[in-house]
């Protein structure tokens, strides 16, 4: 554990909490892609199958449980409790375009052709593209509430901080994981355009609005 990794985890946690609080306090999930949230829930389930078989630390286990509960809570709020506010007309990204390639790739490129390992690899590939339905939704409506953009910024920062963590671990511990690193870079790159808009607009008090 190093400071970059810890900051990444905290950024991830903050993103998840921002989203839950936004939905809970406004009693609305307008502008949020339920499809991205389903993909994140699937990601966590596939990755944390080792929760009871591979003990790492209290921190690790607690965080896994928190991420799982929070992602299921978000999906519950969107599809059950505040279903009426869910903007499904704008949430039209086809999930099979992300899930099927992630399944195929995880069967072909993995560290070890074993059940838990393939599920882990699938979760890494799926997470790297899970935000696409959300970004697609923002581009379709042409704007995002500032709270939604804070959420996206925290979520993007998480993977960017993980990259710094991997560079640090490579030099300090000789540790590297090619699958996680390459997928993590893809995931971070997807946020670049958004980061640019966030810094040039949202931080200056303007609404995130895409150029017409």
């Amino acid at each position: 554990m190093n400071v970059f990794r810890l900051s990444g985890d905290v950024a991830h946690l903050i993103a998840i909490i921002i989203l839950l609080l936004k939905i809970w306090t406004s009693r609305s999930c307008a502008g949020i892609s339920g499809k991205s949230q389903i993909l994140f829930a699937v990601t966590f389930v596939a990755r944390y199958l080792d929760l009871f078989t591979n003990y790492v630390s209290i921190y690790n286990s607690v965080m896994k449980i928190v991420y799982l509960l929070a992602s299921f809570g978000t999906v519950y709020l969107m599809y059950m409790k505040f279903k009426a506010t869910y903007d499904h007309n704008h949430d039209t990204f086809r999930l099979e375009f992300l899930i099927l390639p992630a399944i195929a790739l995880s069967l072909i490129i993995n560290h070890d052709f074993a059940v838990i390992e393939v599920f882990w690899t699938f979760s890494i590939y799926l997470e790297s593209v899970a935000i696409l339905p959300q970004l697609f939704m923002v581009s379709k409506t042409g704007e995002a509430e500032s709270i939604t953009s804070h959420y996206l910024f925290a979520l993007g920062s998480y993977r960017a901080l993980y990259i710094v963590n991997w560079i640090y671990r490579y030099y300090m511990e000789g540790f590297y994981d090619m699958i996680a690193t390459l997928a993590g870079i893809v995931q971070t790159v997807l946020y670049c355009d958004f980061f640019y808009l966030y810094i040039t607009k949202v931080l200056k008090g303007k609404k995130l609005q895409l150029p017409a």
């Binding site: 790492v56 896994k64 991420y67 390992e117 963590n165 540790f175 590297y176 994981d177």
Partner: peptide, 10 residues
């Protein structure tokens, strides 16, 4: 080390 597949990370 091509380590323990990053399983200590979240």
């Amino acid at each position: 080390i091509a380590a323990q597949f990053g399983k200590d990370e979240l």
